[in-house]
Design a protein around this nucleic acid. Sequence first.
DNA 1: AGTAAGTGGAGAAGATATCTCCAGTTAATG
DNA 2: CATTAACTGGAGATATCTTCTCCACTTACT
Lengths: 224, 224
Amino acid sequence: MTESSRQSDPVEGGRPLRRDAALNRERILHAAREVFGQQGLGVTLDGVARHAGVGVGTVYRRFPTKEALIQALFAQDLRIRQEAADRALAHPDPWQGLVDFLMEMAADLAENRGLYEVLMLGAHTSAPIDSARDGMLPLLQALIRRARESGDLRPEVTPADIPVIQHMVYAAAQFTHGQQPDTWRRYLEILLNGLRRRPDDPPLETPSLSDEMVEQAMGISRAE
Amino acid sequence: MTESSRQSDPVEGGRPLRRDAALNRERILHAAREVFGQQGLGVTLDGVARHAGVGVGTVYRRFPTKEALIQALFAQDLRIRQEAADRALAHPDPWQGLVDFLMEMAADLAENRGLYEVLMLGAHTSAPIDSARDGMLPLLQALIRRARESGDLRPEVTPADIPVIQHMVYAAAQFTHGQQPDTWRRYLEILLNGLRRRPDDPPLETPSLSDEMVEQAMGISRAE
DNA sequence: AGTAAGTGGAGAAGATATCTCCAGTTAATG
DNA sequence: CATTAACTGGAGATATCTTCTCCACTTACT
């Protein structure tokens, strides 16, 4: 699952790593994925090193800063998220496409705290991560438009609602995770129920944020 | 608003405070309420002191630990929450009572981060705060039962859903707060829409946590 | 066997946070 | 007023964490 095109990873520009060094690099990435996923990006590199069974020095030689490690880990995940949006957009039933996308995304975030912090809080951002994230906005817009036009989605729903919903489901997941890891689905179900258009329902009273405001909100969380 | 029965507060057991000391005590409590409300309980007592315009020493003399200060501040708030539940229970329309309660509670949490951390994360708990919080569970149960029996609430909803919903709305509030402080209402509206019983809707697929699990989940968040 | 590459982990350096201490100030009392 | 017990501010002692460096020692490769 986490083993992909890593074997021959050339590592930036340098010469190929010695065999033991390459192995340790893998160990570090693997440990980081695990630890960041479970405990978030707050974990220190000493913590990652301990979990990987190597010395801190080794971690710092391979990844000069925490950011470098995070970037190496999550750039790929974000690309995968984008593919999920593409797939959702290709779904024959617009509503079901939206539902699938939200479920898939929430599932990823719920079980990967680090990914949540990178994607939703903009923690430890870097250019490649930022751009991957920004590339997702137009896809969201298309996804919403399609579902709205098909008549299944409340017409007041905007793309700006999606990140908020993800935050909410993540909060539910965090709270319930220790007990029943899948309970967040219940709350996404409830939200989806509330988002579904019903002919005789009154419209929502409170307007959503504008798209610019969402960007700002993400920027603000980032600062914290 | 924050000025209540404070003037003659006898302070634990000791002799009455000198006038300047009493004034400073008020200043500290007032500043703490403001700072904890806006920035959460993470603020240091040095920070509270600065905001209150007194020296750290003064804060520490009056409140030997951070816990003592927090306890003095929030015990009252929790009592107020309980009254809100009582009021909701007395509402002639069970569904509307539930809606009012959730709105009121969410409003308080949304604009008081410290209260959220004490009530929902169990941060810096102490006996009186714990017991005030525990006293609310039976009220929630009654509230849910009533709304369910009236036929407006989905029958699968349990008291254990309430804290999760509060976490979700709080997450929405945190995200949107900097832009439009009231936008969380939109998401509570959506949730309530999803919680409302509709004759032809399929039941929720994912079960809720049991009450014991909720307590444990709160305990776990507490540890963190 | 020689050597360049790699290793671990003690500890330097820098942030914060909590809490103490005391020389100096101020309110209350006769 | 003068006396004094209460109170004050804030520098700094102590402790805890993180990040990151350095180097004596080990290991893979030729």
